[in-house]
């Protein structure tokens, strides 16, 4: 079942982009849109949007970089792991829960390292890879998306994103304990 599901999605991910190009442009052509002119008109915006993001992303990433390099994560994990172990979160997986919303490359590194030391099919290996797949890098998404439209007052977007992250991590832990728990 999973195999079948996976092969279907593999096919989709290969044909999706050429497919979309054909559908969008073909449909436009049939509907007598001046496809080339309209395409160029839309594409013009790409440069400005990308440039607008720079200050927001610099602000966000350098703060996260300082936090990561300082080793504050280890201190945080040392303080909180006795508490989180009560709800069945292994101390080794705790850094992943904190890193996932902060940094995509950081959590990718943590995931790879844990699988190297504990094995990909160990409980920890399955747990951290599920955690990795269970949410997005909240801080990065906020910086890029709000940066693109020059929004500085982000209101409740961050707390809502962090609630999503918390439930993603907790959900990953619970489902892994039920299916693969020891």
């Amino acid at each position: 079942m999973t195999e079948f599901f996976r092969s279907i999605l593999n096919v989709i991910s290969v044909i999706a982009i050429p497919g979309l190009i054909v559908v969008f442009l073909g449909w436009g052509f049939v509907k007598k849109v001046k496809v080339y002119e309209v395409f160029v008109e839309g594409a013009k915006e790409g440069f400005n949007t990308a440039i607008r993001i720079i200050p927001y992303l610099v602000a966000m990433l350098f703060a996260i970089g300082i936090f990561r390099a300082s080793g504050a994560m280890d201190v945080l994990v040392a303080i909180l792991s006795p508490v989180t172990e009560l709800i069945g979160m292994p101390a080794e997986a705790l850094p992943m829960a904190f890193m996932r919303p902060l940094s995509g490359s950081g959590s990718l590194g943590l995931m790879t390292e844990i699988m190297k030391t504990h094995g990909a099919d160990s409980f920890l290996g399955v747990l951290v890879s599920t955690m990795y797949g269970s949410t997005e890098t909240t801080f990065y998404v906020l910086a890029v998306y709000f940066g693109a439209v020059n929004i500085k007052n982000t209101r409740h977007a961050l707390p809502a994103g962090l609630v999503a992250d918390f439930f993603g991590m907790a959900g990953a832990l619970i489902v892994c304990r039920i299916l693969f728990g020891v």
Binding site: F24, T49, M60
Partner: peptide, 27 residues
């Protein structure tokens, strides 16, 4: 941060162009 942003320029332009066509066509 700057590398990521600049790296977005190409794909941004490509997709924004395609989306504009899809919009104009009523898709």
């Amino acid at each position: 941060a700057v590398e990521i942003s600049l790296g977005l320029i190409g794909i941004m332009a490509l997709w924004l162009g395609l989306i504009k066509v899809a919009e104009a066509a009523g898709f």
